Amino acid sequence: MANANHNPNGLISYGPNENCTLTPGPSYCPAKVGVYEYRPSLAANSVFITLFGVALITHLVLGIRYKTWAFLFAIFWGCASEMIGYGGRVLMWGNPFSFTGFLMQIICITLGPAFYSAAIYLTLSKIIIFLGPQHARFSPKLYYWVFIPCDILSLILQAVGGALSSVSSGSSAAAVDVAIAGLSFQVFTLCVFIALGIEFSVRYIRAQRSQPRKTPLPTSFKIFVAFLSLSITCILIRCAYRIDELSDGYDGPLIHNEPLFIGLEGVMSVLAVYALVVAHPGPVFGRSDANMYESDVTAPSGGRTEKVEPGISATQQSV
Protein backbone atom coordinates (compact mmCIF):
# COMPACT_ATOMS: atom_id res chain seq x y z
CA MET A 1 0.00 0.00 0.00
CA ALA A 2 1.01 3.60 -0.52
CA ASN A 3 3.00 5.02 2.37
CA ALA A 4 2.90 1.70 4.23
CA ASN A 5 6.61 1.94 4.89
CA HIS A 6 6.50 5.57 6.00
CA ASN A 7 4.23 5.33 9.02
CA PRO A 8 5.71 6.79 12.22
CA ASN A 9 6.76 4.39 14.99
CA GLY A 10 5.87 1.40 12.82
CA LEU A 11 2.14 2.07 13.17
CA ILE A 12 -0.36 0.50 10.74
CA SER A 13 -2.36 3.01 8.72
CA TYR A 14 -4.38 0.60 6.57
CA GLY A 15 -6.03 -2.78 6.96
CA PRO A 16 -8.08 -4.64 9.57
CA ASN A 17 -5.28 -4.14 12.10
CA GLU A 18 -4.86 -0.40 11.56
CA ASN A 19 -3.93 1.46 14.73
CA CYS A 20 -3.18 4.98 13.52
CA THR A 21 -5.27 7.90 14.79
CA LEU A 22 -5.35 11.63 14.25
CA THR A 23 -5.37 12.17 18.01
CA PRO A 24 -2.03 13.51 19.30
CA GLY A 25 -0.19 10.78 21.18
CA PRO A 26 1.77 7.58 20.59
CA SER A 27 -0.73 6.39 17.93
CA TYR A 28 -0.77 9.67 15.98
CA CYS A 29 -0.28 9.51 12.21
CA PRO A 30 -0.67 12.33 9.69
CA ALA A 31 -3.52 11.90 7.21
CA LYS A 32 -1.03 11.73 4.34
CA VAL A 33 0.04 8.21 5.33
CA GLY A 34 -3.51 6.92 4.86
CA VAL A 35 -4.69 5.07 1.76
CA TYR A 36 -6.02 8.28 0.18
CA GLU A 37 -3.39 10.61 1.62
CA TYR A 38 -6.13 13.06 2.67
CA ARG A 39 -9.17 13.40 4.94
CA PRO A 40 -12.33 13.11 2.86
CA SER A 41 -14.40 16.29 2.88
CA LEU A 42 -17.15 16.18 5.50
CA ALA A 43 -19.18 18.85 3.69
CA ALA A 44 -19.02 17.24 0.24
CA ASN A 45 -19.82 13.74 1.47
CA SER A 46 -22.67 14.96 3.67
CA VAL A 47 -24.16 16.76 0.67
CA PHE A 48 -23.93 13.57 -1.41
CA ILE A 49 -25.65 11.53 1.31
CA THR A 50 -28.46 14.10 1.40
CA LEU A 51 -28.82 14.27 -2.39
CA PHE A 52 -28.97 10.50 -2.79
CA GLY A 53 -31.43 10.32 0.10
CA VAL A 54 -33.73 12.83 -1.57
CA ALA A 55 -33.40 10.95 -4.87
CA LEU A 56 -34.27 7.68 -3.13
CA ILE A 57 -37.42 9.17 -1.59
CA THR A 58 -38.43 10.79 -4.89
CA HIS A 59 -38.03 7.54 -6.82
CA LEU A 60 -39.84 5.67 -4.06
CA VAL A 61 -42.87 7.96 -4.43
CA LEU A 62 -42.82 7.69 -8.24
CA GLY A 63 -42.30 3.93 -8.15
CA ILE A 64 -45.23 3.35 -5.80
CA ARG A 65 -47.47 5.73 -7.70
CA TYR A 66 -46.82 4.17 -11.11
CA LYS A 67 -46.08 0.64 -9.84
CA THR A 68 -42.79 0.46 -11.72
CA TRP A 69 -41.42 -2.12 -9.30
CA ALA A 70 -38.40 -3.37 -11.24
CA PHE A 71 -37.23 0.17 -12.04
CA LEU A 72 -37.77 1.18 -8.40
CA PHE A 73 -35.86 -1.88 -7.12
CA ALA A 74 -32.79 -0.94 -9.17
CA ILE A 75 -32.83 2.75 -8.26
CA PHE A 76 -33.52 2.03 -4.57
CA TRP A 77 -30.46 -0.17 -4.18
CA GLY A 78 -28.37 2.22 -6.24
CA CYS A 79 -29.20 5.17 -3.97
CA ALA A 80 -28.90 3.05 -0.81
CA SER A 81 -25.45 1.86 -1.90
CA GLU A 82 -24.34 5.41 -2.58
CA MET A 83 -25.55 6.60 0.84
CA ILE A 84 -23.73 3.79 2.62
CA GLY A 85 -20.60 4.46 0.56
CA TYR A 86 -20.50 8.17 1.30
CA GLY A 87 -21.26 7.33 4.93
CA GLY A 88 -18.01 5.36 4.81
CA ARG A 89 -16.21 8.46 3.58
CA VAL A 90 -17.68 10.44 6.47
CA LEU A 91 -16.19 7.80 8.79
CA MET A 92 -12.87 8.36 7.06
CA TRP A 93 -13.18 12.08 7.68
CA GLY A 94 -13.23 11.28 11.39
CA ASN A 95 -10.50 8.66 10.98
CA PRO A 96 -8.81 8.56 7.55
CA PHE A 97 -7.29 5.19 8.54
CA SER A 98 -10.67 3.51 9.16
CA PHE A 99 -10.62 0.18 7.33
CA THR A 100 -14.39 -0.20 7.83
CA GLY A 101 -14.99 3.21 6.27
CA PHE A 102 -12.69 2.38 3.36
CA LEU A 103 -14.48 -0.89 2.60
CA MET A 104 -17.90 0.77 2.85
CA GLN A 105 -17.01 3.38 0.29
CA ILE A 106 -14.84 1.34 -2.09
CA ILE A 107 -17.55 -1.34 -2.42
CA CYS A 108 -20.79 0.61 -2.19
CA ILE A 109 -19.85 3.70 -4.20
CA THR A 110 -18.44 1.43 -6.91
CA LEU A 111 -21.65 -0.63 -7.08
CA GLY A 112 -24.22 2.20 -7.00
CA PRO A 113 -24.17 3.28 -10.68
CA ALA A 114 -24.41 -0.35 -11.84
CA PHE A 115 -27.93 -0.39 -10.38
CA TYR A 116 -28.75 2.79 -12.33
CA SER A 117 -27.58 1.03 -15.49
CA ALA A 118 -29.98 -1.82 -14.74
CA ALA A 119 -32.85 0.68 -14.43
CA ILE A 120 -31.88 2.20 -17.79
CA TYR A 121 -31.82 -1.21 -19.49
CA LEU A 122 -35.40 -1.81 -18.39
CA THR A 123 -36.58 1.24 -20.31
CA LEU A 124 -35.34 0.32 -23.80
CA SER A 125 -37.96 -2.39 -24.27
CA LYS A 126 -40.67 0.11 -23.26
CA ILE A 127 -39.36 2.64 -25.77
CA ILE A 128 -39.35 0.00 -28.52
CA ILE A 129 -42.88 -1.12 -27.71
CA PHE A 130 -44.03 2.50 -27.60
CA LEU A 131 -42.50 3.46 -30.96
CA GLY A 132 -43.16 0.13 -32.66
CA PRO A 133 -41.59 -3.32 -32.19
CA GLN A 134 -41.54 -3.76 -35.97
CA HIS A 135 -38.62 -1.31 -36.13
CA ALA A 136 -36.45 -3.35 -33.75
CA ARG A 137 -34.00 -6.01 -34.83
CA PHE A 138 -34.84 -8.13 -31.78
CA SER A 139 -37.82 -8.80 -29.56
CA PRO A 140 -38.21 -6.03 -26.93
CA LYS A 141 -37.97 -8.59 -24.12
CA LEU A 142 -34.63 -9.81 -25.43
CA TYR A 143 -33.02 -6.47 -24.58
CA TYR A 144 -33.50 -6.73 -20.85
CA TRP A 145 -33.00 -10.51 -20.81
CA VAL A 146 -29.51 -9.84 -22.21
CA PHE A 147 -28.52 -6.56 -20.59
CA ILE A 148 -29.76 -7.21 -17.04
CA PRO A 149 -27.67 -10.43 -16.67
CA CYS A 150 -24.67 -8.53 -18.09
CA ASP A 151 -25.21 -5.82 -15.49
CA ILE A 152 -25.47 -8.43 -12.74
CA LEU A 153 -22.16 -9.89 -13.89
CA SER A 154 -20.49 -6.48 -13.71
CA LEU A 155 -21.95 -6.03 -10.20
CA ILE A 156 -20.55 -9.40 -9.13
CA LEU A 157 -17.09 -8.62 -10.48
CA GLN A 158 -17.00 -5.24 -8.75
CA ALA A 159 -18.23 -6.74 -5.48
CA VAL A 160 -15.64 -9.53 -5.67
CA GLY A 161 -12.94 -6.93 -6.28
CA GLY A 162 -13.99 -5.09 -3.12
CA ALA A 163 -14.15 -8.32 -1.14
CA LEU A 164 -10.66 -9.34 -2.25
CA SER A 165 -9.40 -5.92 -1.16
CA SER A 166 -10.72 -6.57 2.33
CA VAL A 167 -9.21 -10.05 2.54
CA SER A 168 -5.82 -8.86 1.31
CA SER A 169 -5.83 -5.61 3.30
CA GLY A 170 -5.71 -3.81 -0.02
CA SER A 171 -2.41 -5.33 -1.13
CA SER A 172 -3.83 -7.64 -3.82
CA ALA A 173 -3.30 -6.50 -7.40
CA ALA A 174 -5.83 -9.17 -8.42
CA ALA A 175 -8.51 -7.39 -6.39
CA VAL A 176 -7.96 -4.18 -8.36
CA ASP A 177 -7.89 -6.12 -11.64
CA VAL A 178 -11.23 -7.79 -10.87
CA ALA A 179 -12.81 -4.45 -9.97
CA ILE A 180 -11.48 -2.91 -13.19
CA ALA A 181 -12.84 -5.90 -15.14
CA GLY A 182 -16.28 -5.29 -13.64
CA LEU A 183 -16.17 -1.58 -14.47
CA SER A 184 -14.86 -2.28 -17.98
CA PHE A 185 -17.61 -4.82 -18.63
CA GLN A 186 -20.17 -2.29 -17.43
CA VAL A 187 -18.81 0.26 -19.92
CA PHE A 188 -18.81 -2.36 -22.70
CA THR A 189 -22.41 -3.31 -21.94
CA LEU A 190 -23.47 0.34 -21.92
CA CYS A 191 -21.74 0.92 -25.26
CA VAL A 192 -23.51 -2.07 -26.84
CA PHE A 193 -26.78 -0.81 -25.37
CA ILE A 194 -26.19 2.65 -26.86
CA ALA A 195 -25.29 1.14 -30.24
CA LEU A 196 -28.51 -0.89 -30.34
CA GLY A 197 -30.50 2.14 -29.21
CA ILE A 198 -28.99 4.23 -32.01
CA GLU A 199 -29.65 1.47 -34.53
CA PHE A 200 -33.29 1.29 -33.47
CA SER A 201 -33.56 5.08 -33.75
CA VAL A 202 -32.15 5.01 -37.30
CA ARG A 203 -34.56 2.23 -38.34
CA TYR A 204 -37.47 4.12 -36.79
CA ILE A 205 -36.56 7.43 -38.50
CA ARG A 206 -36.23 5.71 -41.86
CA ALA A 207 -39.63 4.06 -41.41
CA GLN A 208 -41.21 7.43 -40.59
CA ARG A 209 -40.16 8.83 -43.94
CA SER A 210 -42.39 6.35 -45.76
CA GLN A 211 -45.13 5.95 -43.17
CA PRO A 212 -45.18 8.76 -40.58
CA ARG A 213 -47.03 8.49 -37.26
CA LYS A 214 -50.63 9.63 -37.16
CA THR A 215 -49.79 11.88 -34.23
CA PRO A 216 -46.45 13.57 -33.42
CA LEU A 217 -44.34 12.30 -30.55
CA PRO A 218 -45.40 14.09 -27.36
CA THR A 219 -43.02 16.58 -25.74
CA SER A 220 -43.01 14.46 -22.58
CA PHE A 221 -41.53 11.53 -24.50
CA LYS A 222 -38.83 13.69 -26.10
CA ILE A 223 -37.85 15.06 -22.69
CA PHE A 224 -37.81 11.51 -21.34
CA VAL A 225 -35.37 10.35 -24.03
CA ALA A 226 -33.14 13.42 -23.59
CA PHE A 227 -32.73 12.90 -19.85
CA LEU A 228 -32.30 9.16 -20.28
CA SER A 229 -29.42 9.94 -22.64
CA LEU A 230 -27.98 12.37 -20.09
CA SER A 231 -28.05 9.66 -17.40
CA ILE A 232 -26.27 7.19 -19.69
CA THR A 233 -23.61 9.78 -20.55
CA CYS A 234 -22.95 10.58 -16.89
CA ILE A 235 -22.58 6.89 -16.02
CA LEU A 236 -20.15 6.38 -18.90
CA ILE A 237 -18.01 9.36 -17.79
CA ARG A 238 -18.01 8.08 -14.22
CA CYS A 239 -17.03 4.53 -15.21
CA ALA A 240 -14.24 5.75 -17.49
CA TYR A 241 -12.87 7.83 -14.63
CA ARG A 242 -12.99 4.92 -12.15
CA ILE A 243 -11.19 2.61 -14.58
CA ASP A 244 -8.44 5.21 -15.00
CA GLU A 245 -8.36 5.86 -11.24
CA LEU A 246 -7.83 2.19 -10.40
CA SER A 247 -5.51 1.44 -13.32
CA ASP A 248 -2.48 1.98 -11.04
CA GLY A 249 -4.08 0.34 -8.01
CA TYR A 250 -4.21 2.23 -4.74
CA ASP A 251 -0.85 3.86 -5.48
CA GLY A 252 -1.92 5.80 -8.58
CA PRO A 253 -2.13 9.61 -8.64
CA LEU A 254 -5.86 9.82 -9.38
CA ILE A 255 -6.89 7.97 -6.23
CA HIS A 256 -5.29 10.73 -4.17
CA ASN A 257 -7.16 13.54 -5.97
CA GLU A 258 -10.37 14.26 -4.05
CA PRO A 259 -11.67 17.18 -6.20
CA LEU A 260 -11.51 14.91 -9.25
CA PHE A 261 -13.32 12.16 -7.33
CA ILE A 262 -16.04 14.59 -6.26
CA GLY A 263 -16.54 15.88 -9.80
CA LEU A 264 -16.28 12.70 -11.86
CA GLU A 265 -17.68 10.17 -9.37
CA GLY A 266 -20.03 11.99 -7.02
CA VAL A 267 -21.41 14.70 -9.29
CA MET A 268 -21.78 12.35 -12.28
CA SER A 269 -23.66 9.80 -10.17
CA VAL A 270 -25.95 12.46 -8.73
CA LEU A 271 -26.71 13.82 -12.21
CA ALA A 272 -27.39 10.27 -13.44
CA VAL A 273 -29.93 9.43 -10.76
CA TYR A 274 -31.71 12.80 -10.93
CA ALA A 275 -31.86 12.60 -14.71
CA LEU A 276 -33.73 9.32 -14.15
CA VAL A 277 -36.28 11.22 -12.06
CA VAL A 278 -37.18 13.19 -15.20
CA ALA A 279 -36.70 10.08 -17.34
CA HIS A 280 -38.91 7.97 -15.08
CA PRO A 281 -40.94 5.53 -17.21
CA GLY A 282 -44.11 5.97 -15.14
CA PRO A 283 -45.36 9.37 -16.38
CA VAL A 284 -44.65 8.49 -20.03
CA PHE A 285 -45.63 4.82 -20.21
CA GLY A 286 -48.14 4.68 -17.38
CA ARG A 287 -48.53 1.99 -14.74
CA SER A 288 -46.73 -1.26 -15.36
CA ASP A 289 -49.98 -3.18 -14.93
CA ALA A 290 -51.88 -1.03 -17.42
CA ASN A 291 -52.78 -2.41 -20.83
CA MET A 292 -50.39 -0.02 -22.58
CA TYR A 293 -48.89 -2.33 -25.17
CA GLU A 294 -51.83 -2.54 -27.52
CA SER A 295 -51.19 -1.39 -31.07
CA ASP A 296 -54.02 1.11 -30.61
CA VAL A 297 -55.91 2.30 -27.55
CA THR A 298 -59.46 3.56 -27.71
CA ALA A 299 -60.12 6.55 -25.50
CA PRO A 300 -63.28 8.65 -25.14
CA SER A 301 -62.91 12.35 -25.86
CA GLY A 302 -65.83 14.74 -25.63
CA GLY A 303 -68.49 12.14 -26.41
CA ARG A 304 -66.58 10.65 -29.34
CA THR A 305 -64.05 7.88 -29.65
CA GLU A 306 -60.59 8.48 -31.03
CA LYS A 307 -57.44 6.48 -31.55
CA VAL A 308 -54.39 7.35 -29.48
CA GLU A 309 -50.83 6.12 -29.73
CA PRO A 310 -49.88 3.23 -27.42
CA GLY A 311 -48.27 3.93 -24.09
CA ILE A 312 -49.63 7.42 -23.32
CA SER A 313 -52.98 8.98 -22.61
CA ALA A 314 -54.92 11.23 -24.92
CA THR A 315 -54.14 14.11 -22.56
CA GLN A 316 -50.40 13.46 -22.80
CA GLN A 317 -50.58 13.46 -26.62
CA SER A 318 -51.79 17.04 -26.51
CA VAL A 319 -48.71 18.17 -24.57
Rank of each mutant, 00 (worst) to 15 (best):
E18H: 12
S220R: 14
D248T: 01
P310S: 00
G249R: 05
E265M: 07
L183S: 08
V160I: 15
Q134D: 03
G282L: 08
L56V: 10
E245C: 08
I120F: 03
V54W: 00
L157V: 01
L217E: 12
V167S: 11
F261W: 02
I57P: 06
I120Q: 12
P216R: 02
V176M: 02
L264H: 01
G63Q: 02
F261N: 08
S229V: 14
E37K: 03
C150R: 00
F193H: 10
R203D: 07
W93Y: 15
P140W: 11
C239A: 15
I129E: 09
L276S: 08
V47C: 01
E309S: 11
P212Y: 11
I84Y: 11
P26C: 04
T215P: 05
V284I: 14
E37F: 01
A174Q: 12
M104T: 01
N17E: 12
T305S: 15
G266E: 07
E309K: 12
Y121T: 00
Q158S: 15
T50I: 15
E294K: 14
L72S: 10
A44V: 15
A279N: 03
I128H: 06
S231F: 10
H280F: 06
V61S: 02
A272G: 11
E294R: 14
I49Q: 02
Y250K: 02
I243K: 03
E258C: 11
G249E: 10
L56T: 12
L62W: 14
P24N: 00
V178G: 05
I262W: 03
G25P: 10
Y204E: 13
K214H: 07
F52L: 05
G132V: 01
Y250W: 15
Y144M: 09
W145M: 13
L246R: 02
V54A: 09
I223M: 11
L190T: 04
A275T: 14
I198S: 04
I75L: 09
P283M: 01
P218T: 12
S201H: 15
L131R: 15
L124C: 05
K126N: 10
H280Y: 01
A43R: 00
G63H: 12
A240E: 00
F138N: 14
T298G: 03
Y66P: 04
F227Q: 04
E265C: 10
I120L: 15
L60T: 15
V278L: 08
S301T: 03
A31Q: 14
A119H: 09
R137K: 09
F138T: 05
A272D: 12
G170W: 00
T68L: 10
Q186F: 03
G263W: 04
N257T: 03
S168C: 09
I152F: 14
R242D: 09
